Structure formats: structure tokens, C-alpha cells
Amino acid sequence: MAELLPNIDVAVSVELVEFLERMARLGEESDKFEVERHCIHPGQRRTDIVNFRLIGESIHEGHGFQLIAYDDRPGRVNVEMRAARWLPDPPTKAVYIEAARGLAGELLRQYNREFGSRYRLRIGARHGKAFAMSELTTTLLERFTILANTSSLHFYDWQRFYALVRESRQEIPDYLLRSHLTKAGFSTQRAVELAEIYMHLWAFKKLR
């Protein structure tokens, strides 16, 4: 069973969007990251996301992290570590925390030096039991993976993928979804892309 990974966030005193933009700029100027900005704003609530993809070498394939700010959680920015393939995969809690301190933590220290702040990563255990996939989620996932054209999804494949989000009451952890997709025959890159789409769809679903 995969080890339970911790929640990581940063308590900030400035506007969330301003903090994200400052971090994005620092990431770009460092020449260490490819930076992507996203905003999900389907209604009254808004979610801002900044992706930091590591350019240099790492023991983890496709390594990076995300900063996520929900406008209904003022003063809090979530930090989520990403990798197309971890070493080991899935990552242990210790490996995940080390990655957070090495990437997000280092950029945050640079932020503190430039803006005279004292922000830090807040690392805490997730509440509850380890993730256990329900029968419904398992059925929906298998329906998609077994029937999908792994090289090029067609219309009905996408319908089954959307159903995995729409009909399930569980959000599958990123690393676990990627593992299932690669085992089903998807390339590592395609599994990462689908996992990111899945994450954005769930973010939209939570705003409803």
C-alpha cells in the first residue's frame, strides 16, 4: 500500500494572486523552471494554479511542483509536488517532503530574501486513513482503461474519462492514477497529461 503523503501549504499575508505571481517570476528568473499559470473561474469561486516544471536533471522524471490558491481559503497556498515517475514510485513520505524542501522550499527562501518575509512550508499529516478505492471508482477507472485507445483517445474514450470524474465520489491521488494509466498501456507522458486534466476537472467539480 502506498504511504500516506502529507499536506503542505504556506501561510501568506499578501494577496494570494500577488504571492503566486511573485513566485512565478522568481521561478522564471531562476532559469530552473518552466512556469505555467492557470486560472479556473467557472462561477463565484476562483482557483489560481502555477506549475513549476524543473528544467535540470533530477532523480525523479518530469519533476516539479504546483502552487494552488483557492479564493475561499484566504491566506493559504497549497503546495503539491509532481513527477511523471518518482524514485521510488509511488514516493515515500520522506522522499515527498525532501522534494518539497528542495524545490518549493528553496524558491520560498529566495522569496523571503527578496521581499523580507518569513514564509515557510507547513508540513503536516493528512487526516484520515490511507486512500482506498471504492468499488464504483474502480469500475469507472477500469471501464476507461480497458476500453481506451491508449495511443489516441476517441470520443467515447473521453466520455468514459469524464464519467470517472462526474460519477465518482472519490478523487484518485495523482500518483496512483498515473500508476494505473501506465499499467494499462499509456505512455508516461500521456499518463501525466491525463492526470493533470483529471486534477483540473476535479478542481472544477469542487467549485460547483
Rank of each mutant, 00 (worst) to 15 (best):
L87M: 09
G128Q: 01
T145H: 05
A163C: 02
G27Q: 02
V79W: 05
F131M: 05
T47I: 13
L16K: 10
N112T: 00
E28P: 01
I8F: 11
D89C: 03
E36F: 08
G75D: 05
F144W: 08
G27S: 01
E171K: 11
Y96W: 09
L107Y: 04
R25A: 04
P6L: 10
S13N: 14
V192E: 15
L5E: 02
W202C: 07
Y119L: 11
F52P: 05
L147A: 15
W86F: 09
I197D: 13
H200A: 11
R73L: 13
P91M: 12
G102Q: 08
P91K: 11
G185M: 08
P88G: 09
I123N: 03
A130I: 07
R22H: 12
E3N: 09
L164K: 01
M199V: 01
R37Q: 12
R82Y: 00
R45E: 14
L164V: 00
W86M: 08
P88W: 09
S30Q: 10
W158A: 06
G124D: 10
G102T: 10
L54N: 07
A130H: 15
V95A: 13
G43P: 01
S30F: 04
F161C: 03
S134F: 01
V50A: 08
E34W: 12
T92L: 02
N78L: 09
L164Q: 02
E114K: 13
E61I: 15
F144S: 10
A163V: 05
V35Y: 00
S117A: 08
T138H: 12
L20K: 01
E21W: 00
R109I: 00
F33K: 01
D72A: 06
Q170H: 07
P74K: 15
H63F: 14
R109D: 15
N78R: 09
E114C: 04
K93M: 10
E28T: 03
K32M: 04
E21N: 14
L87I: 00
S179I: 15
Y70P: 00
T137M: 11
G124F: 14
F144T: 06
K205C: 05
F65P: 04
V14I: 14
L194H: 06
G43W: 11
G56L: 06
I49N: 02
F186W: 11
K129P: 06
E142I: 02
A83M: 10
D72L: 10
H180W: 12
L108P: 01
L4H: 09
Q159F: 10
E171P: 01
F155W: 13
S13P: 03
D31K: 10
A203S: 11
L136M: 07
E196R: 13
R122V: 15
P91W: 10
W158S: 01
R113V: 07
A69T: 05
L108D: 02
V50D: 05
I146D: 15
V14F: 11
E3S: 04
E15V: 09
E28N: 11
I68P: 04
E167K: 12
A148T: 02
V17A: 14
G128W: 13
